[in-house]
Design a protein around this nucleic acid. Structure first.
Lengths: 149, 149
DNA sequence: CTTCATGTAACTTAGTTAGTTACGAATACG
DNA sequence: CGTATTCGTAACTAACTAAGTTACATGAAG
């Protein structure tokens, strides 16, 4: 199965937004960060706007900004707002009435429910602020090492 | 993203195989259980054969059987043998050199590694025998209730 | 040596997602 | 004003994936 890069692209964009909190970034600029098209960006983060994670303003000087402080935006929320599934397997019944299938689906659904709870719990402890902090740590390290050389 | 039903279909097939341990089931019969094509079945469970989870024999009277006892076949092994990814998101670098991307990928990879470890651990505690037991429990319940009525 | 079954390659079809074009709606600025 | 800028969104195209299908070679049983 093909893996989805929307979560990682979106986080990339959001960290850039967190890094310039005083100015709105246009879809065009955001698209530049992840080498894609402005329309793709708008489409992708439309769900984040509905979740209040980002705000958008139209017209001159408009663009995108974070909807609240980075330490109050968790990866769990972002993932949910993107409409991503944490677990990729489906348990749609395909042979209604087959007891074997019912048993398989029951066990798999139990597992999925518990797994989703667990993963969401963990993702809810990682915030955008953690990502920007990690970024700045890396940035400072580069600075120090180039200074030292 | 579209969800993958290969794990659940394969489990369905395997429970049927576990339920008739003394006879080999043909791809044709297995395909019937999940309403698909024999070739799709062979292709799907080819990986399970390589993992020793099932065996196949050709020619007259041939077909598929479990490679070992159901209580020694875990869902973790099955999932791995299918080549499924437990987590659907990718972290391929797309802007090499971008420190923001590096930070995002580092955090996401950490999360994925830990999540995969956790999910695999849980899946390794669920065996095919658990599934067949659940199936028989359901089967007996139906039997009892129709007897009672 | 005929029949049955798997193994596998090659092709077709369907469905999903990214990318693109186009244009309407809203906002700022002179 | 009205013009430039920017988002919102629909519609289309292209690329990719996975399932389904056909065909045939290989191997085993009788």
């Amino acid at each position: 199965m093909k893996r989805n890069s929307r979560l990682s692209s979106t986080l990339h964009i959001l960290v850039h937004m967190a890094d310039t909190p005083d100015q709105a970034l246009t879809s065009e600029q955001l698209a530049g960060f992840i080498h894609t098209n402005p329309v793709v960006v708008r489409r992708t983060i439309a769900g984040l706007r509905e979740a209040g994670i980002v705000t958008s303003t139209r017209g001159h000087g408009g663009g995108w900004q974070l909807g609240r402080a980075p330490d109050r935006i968790s990866l769990a929320e972002i993932s949910a707002a993107l409409g991503e599934t944490l677990l990729p397997f489906s348990t749609e019944p395909e042979s209604p009435g087959c007891l074997v299938e019912q048993a398989v689906i029951a066990v798999l659904d139990d597992f999925r429910l518990e797994a989703e709870r667990l993963l969401t719990e963990r993702l809810s402890h990682i915030t955008l602020a953690d990502l920007t902090a990690d970024f700045h740590r890396r940035y400072d390290l580069i600075g120090v090492s180039s200074h030292a050389v």
